[in-house]
Amino acid sequence: MIIVSIISLLFSLFLQGLVSNFQSYTIYDLSIFSAVYMLLTLVVLQPYFENDKKFLILILIFGILLDITYSNTFILCTCIFLAIFYLNKLLNFFFPYNLFTVNLFSILSMISYHVITFLFLIILNFDSYNFIILLKVIGCNLIMTVVYTSFMYYLIDFIYKKFKLKLIRE
């Protein structure tokens, strides 16, 4: 299962770069294909990890990779992913894991990601966008978040069952 996780995270890393070439870069002209693919993959993968330590290592490695290659924000994405990991841990505790809830978690994670980034940009007085634009960003991310989460949910579930993989424990 750990190999499947690494491959799916690498796939989302390159998908992030690939899709960026076919869409506008500005925050005012976002396309409906905008999404933080790696974050969504992490949300889908989280219930397959009973060992938090291993999942946290994956978040650290892939968060740093995303930070260095596509966002140039040192370890900002990594820290946000970590925060979202704890949010999802809480959600997974209260809700069962199915297509509906995983999409709900993904949407909440995506909103958290953008809201946290927005709040920190405001704190640091980086005048790049306002609250209306934040809503637009979240709106533009919604469709692809649901599509990609559903795709990854079915794909990973299929691989998990087909190859009779085990949950990642100690």
Binding site: L18, N21, I27, T69, Y70, Y129
Partner: peptide, 15 residues
């Protein structure tokens, strides 16, 4: 050649 645009759209960077 542009390889990718920045994932953080507020950052105005491309690679």
């Amino acid at each position: 050649t542009v390889v990718s645009r920045n994932a953080a759209t507020w950052y105005n960077n491309l690679t």
